[in-house]
Write a protein that binds this DNA or RNA. Sequence first.
RNA 1: GCCCGAGUGGCGGAAUGGCAGACGCGGAGGUCUCAAAAACCUUUGUCCUUUGGACGUGUGGGUUCAACUCCCACCUCGGGCACCA
Length: 861
Amino acid sequence: MYQYDPATIERKWQEYWETSKAHAVEPLGTSGRPTYYALEMFPYPSGDVHMGHVRNYTIGDVISRFKHMQGHNVLHPIGWDSFGLPAENAAIKQGTSPAAWTYANIERQRASLKALGFSYDWDRTVVASDVEYYRWGQWIFLKLWKQGLVERKTSPVNWCPSCATVLANEQVIDGSCWRCKSPVTRKELEQWYFKITDYAQELLDDLDKLPGWPERVKQMQANWIGRSSGAEVDFVLCDKDGAPTDETITVFTTRPDTLFGCTFFLLAPEHPLVERLITGSENEQELRAVVAEAQAVSAVERSKGERPKTGAFTGRFVVNPINGDKVPLWIADYVLMDYGTGAVMAVPSGDERDFEFARAYGLPVVPVVVPDDALGDVSGDAHGAEPIDACGGAWDGALWSAAYAGDGVMVQSGAFTGMRGGKDSEGARAVVAELERSGTGREAVNFRLRDWLISRQRYWGNPIPAVYCDHCGIVPVHEADLPVVLPLDVDVTKGDSLANTPSFYETACPTCGAAAHRETDTMDTFTCSSWYYLRYTDPHNAELPFERETADAWMPVDQYIGGIEHAILHLLYSRFFTKALRDIGLVGFDEPFKNLLTQGMVKLNGETMSKSKGNTVAPEDAIADFGADALRAYILFMAPPDKDLEWSQGGLEGVARFLARVWRTVFDLMAEDVVDDEGNVLNVFDESLGEKDAAERGAGLNRELHRVIGKVTSDIERFNFNTAISAIMELLNTTSAYLKLPLVLRDGELTERAAEVFVLLLAPFAPHFAEELWHEVLGRTSCGSVHEQPWPGFDPEQARAKTVEMAVQLNGKVRTRIVVESDATEEAVRSLALDALGDAVADKPIKKLVVVPGKLVSVVV
RNA sequence: GCCCGAGUGGCGGAAUGGCAGACGCGGAGGUCUCAAAAACCUUUGUCCUUUGGACGUGUGGGUUCAACUCCCACCUCGGGCACCA
């Protein structure tokens, strides 16, 4: 034998796979193989490949190789999400250009990914910043525009001062920028939006079509979409003298059943009516102070919540349509302009926040929905009683020291008194019906989801294909004039931008031909990642982003793998793109990713590995020390893929040791001497073993081969890679016992079969290792690559042992054990068990006896 | 506050309701060696110890012949959302 030297064999087989294009996708329709699309989230080329990448791509590679061996035509592509701000920052810092920095990193990462032996079809690589790719992003933008899904609007937006650009709602985490963590400020700006809210309901409903997604990701998306059902209610605004006008203010509420308890009415400080209402009002100063203070509060502060509620009375009243009551109109800082209508009907008895506000400003509290068990405490006139003040009413004191927001009985609610109250209750429906009858309200649904702000005031991104013309306004670039090429001679280190690059900025109006200028905003990088999985299916298409027929054949992605950090962002945007493209007629499916696996993080001493913390382990170092195959197998063995993984150098060494043991064992199985570095023979035979031992151990090994093939197969299918590798380790232990047999007693057919099974089962995990043994030790070169072999089959019958040991329980405790034929009848097992228990059950009546075949016998006396 | 997820040896982790702790790391002992490394073998949940026994999966209850697993209540940790009307 020769020694296992990962460095040599890994280089050798990587070159072989590269030159033979071993991982090229089979053109569609050339064989009967069913398609399988395995996809990992493409990396941002921020620097070197890190352990998180290794984990992500190893999982995908094992699935791909396994599916390929099972007979699928597998699409397993890679690319780079290469537009984005870090390139600009790095370029400025290092005095280079974003493009140079980006493409240098891509080459570094490409080399690292190749060093890990991933089975990508490298001819299908998609790079987001290549004009061949981003031109189609512009093309899709124009299609979305035509479809009415692109909108320019002015509204308060999130502005990151550090990144000097606006951000989408999804990109603000706890009031700070998702990328640089700087606090985000609010700015009123005109920006480009994708109307993702048009799909809010479908994005929510179709989560049910995704049984292959983790429950928590679906939950997070549902929370983010935030659907609330209730009603819109119109309140008539009164003039300064308290007389009704023809102007109404509409509110959204989830609790129309509490309308009788509305004792005041609130507007957000940013509400468009506010300026008009407060100008010239009696306490204008106070009102302006509330508005000014609300503006000054940062998003970070606001996101922490728990701020004391402040507000001021406008001097105006509005009319409650259900009972004609005039209630005071206040401005309050806790009302959000960007949810509902920016106006709220305040019901302090039923809403904690309104209650707190009412107590702070001495506003009345009128109970209208009370808990069932509270009714008994109330004197007989509760039903139909006049509205009562907080301080004088039957429920004040103990009960109404806080709001009650739960379900209950409606009281003091006119004709509705006595009905069930609560969210979507009988009472709520009845009130809405009454409002609809009088034309003052209607059923309504509200979403938390906001439109996707996609423009960015940055250079290194996909230019938005729009032109500003003094005569025609904002007009789309003609499809025929695409691409709008991002100029590479913009020197960001000198503060240059697209706006001061005349070759880009100055253009002719596509409509009238007059001098005009281009949009200088670029698209959010998340637009690039929203459809790259479609481009992979048809990466070289020069006429279209992809051919529909081809995309439909491969899509949806059978298995998508990536980090949980994209649970909302990328995964929601991609789902939106797919639905929008479907409605435009470009694809024929509803959801992009059929199954999703969110892999856990790689941690060191309990902390996420990160360059800024300086607690990383470089994949190159691990490869140099133990080889890519050991690193791959280790990272799968250490933890289930969806759990966080705590890095352990000892664990890596253990897996490397395991591979080396398999290496020696395969030589041993092929009847070669096992030698160490110095050529000393290491084989140890147990000369005391005879023919009987050989037969027994042979049967045991054969059984173990069948069992382990079955176990590894089902474990990979369920992504239990850690237990799949454990099972191969168990097979190794059984094999070692067999190899104690002197050579003359070994069964040559059996040992060769065992060698073959080791190599085939390890092929997805340790591809170079398996390939080397397949060719050089098993001598199977004539059969082709190990990765082209069919996945080994097994016989469940042969995996079963002839005899099994069963536990015998007496009154719930294991008392003894019996060995029985595995096909023994229940009757036989029963009497054997009773015999084994002997005196303990001899003369006692048996209350119950349960036989679990192959496992145990439970006796109760 | 609301919604998820997780609590098992010294550590990472295994267990379709059926013998808890597979497999690996770490530890202990041994073989080989002048010695070491490597490799190989044995052992390793805790406690009492006697061949054996008792206790053990965050806590307290429950269902069951049988519960890490199912049900109820709670504790701790991690994550998401959050003045969302």
